[in-house]
Amino acid sequence: MSKTLLVTGASGQLGRGIINHLLDTLKVPAARIIATTRTPANLADLAARGVVVRAADFDDTASLEAAFKGADRVLIISTGEIDLLHGKRLRQHENAVAAAKATGVGHLLYTSMPNPEPVSPVLFANDHHGTEQAIKASGIAYTIFRNGWYQENLFMALPQAIASGHWYTSARDGRIAHGARDDMAAAIAAGLAAVSDESKTYTLTGPHAYTTAEIAALASEVIGKPLDVVQISDEALTEGVKAAGIPEDFARIVVSFDANTRAGRIAMVTDAVETLSGRKPKTLKQFLEANKAALTG
């Protein structure tokens, strides 16, 4: 029997990418796909293609239960409600797991992060670790996708660095294998559409891990302009990010990414994207070349 696949956060970039791959790459019939969001009107285009669109509020378990009804495999895309003091996002995810349990969902899938254990320097890592633990405790078969850093995340720092000629970082010689968001979406879509109910955890990365200096050298080659990397302390970097107009809590999160990189906790390279999706992942140089105009303003 064909299973019904549900994607939460379907109006976000990752959610839309996953649904597009379900429809266009994997040819899953639209009637077998449920897309949920707090604002269903934002998914009118998917509804027009035959996708079932439902409202779902992660702060309301009853809303989630209504949205999950009849779904066989449910993908929980982590919400954007990062709350360092009150743990709002973890509570939202726990609500979703409880709703899946209550409605008889057969397989839960979740977008996590690499190495989310409590010792992680990343300030919101416990949201992911706690969610993974809640999923495992539910007794529902699961697939956890530990998404590495997106190549698109480089838009947060690289354009400003290119403009000034100086990239301030505290990552030292730590490495990251940035992956394309669409490559990860393709891999997750394939995992969601799979027939296996075996519980698995995948770490999704790009094809090669680079230091900040190596990324800067690649960027310099592509744009034809020198880019110097300046290593500073976490404290100095935090002050610099705040001076750029970023609120303190988010500045601390940004700097925690560099601390995580410096600790070697995101240096892994896996073949999970290609194994799941059957396609070669985009290289960092390809990303830089494709986005040269956006990176140079």
Rank of each mutant, 00 (worst) to 15 (best):
K3T: 12
L5E: 02
A10D: 07
A10N: 07
S11F: 03
Q13R: 14
L14N: 13
I19L: 13
H21M: 09
L26E: 12
P29H: 09
I33S: 07
I33N: 04
N42I: 01
A44L: 10
A44N: 13
A48M: 06
A48W: 04
G50I: 09
V51W: 12
V51P: 06
V53N: 05
V53D: 02
A56W: 00
E65Y: 00
E65G: 06
A66F: 02
V74W: 00
G80V: 13
D83I: 05
L85Q: 14
H86A: 04
G87C: 02
Q92Y: 10
H93Q: 09
A98F: 00
A99V: 03
A100I: 05
A102Y: 00
A102L: 04
V105G: 01
L108Q: 08
T111E: 03
T111Q: 03
P118S: 05
P121E: 03
P121K: 12
V122M: 14
F124Q: 12
T131Y: 07
E132N: 09
E132I: 12
A134G: 10
I135N: 02
S138A: 15
G139Q: 03
I144L: 10
E152F: 04
E152A: 09
N153L: 11
F155A: 14
A157L: 11
L158A: 02
L158E: 01
S164H: 11
S164M: 03
Y168P: 00
S170G: 10
A171L: 07
G174R: 01
G174W: 00
I176V: 15
A177Y: 04
A177M: 06
A177H: 03
I188S: 06
A193N: 12
A194V: 01
V195W: 11
Y202E: 05
T203Y: 08
Y210D: 07
T211I: 10
E214H: 09
A219H: 03
S220D: 03
V222N: 02
K225V: 06
L227K: 00
V229Y: 09
V229I: 11
S233E: 05
D234N: 15
A236W: 00
A236Q: 15
V241N: 05
A243G: 11
P247Y: 10
E248M: 02
D249L: 07
V254I: 15
V255A: 03
T261M: 10
R265H: 09
I266M: 14
V269L: 11
V269M: 11
D271Y: 08
D271Q: 14
P281A: 14
K282L: 14
F287V: 12
L288Y: 01
N291I: 10
N291A: 13
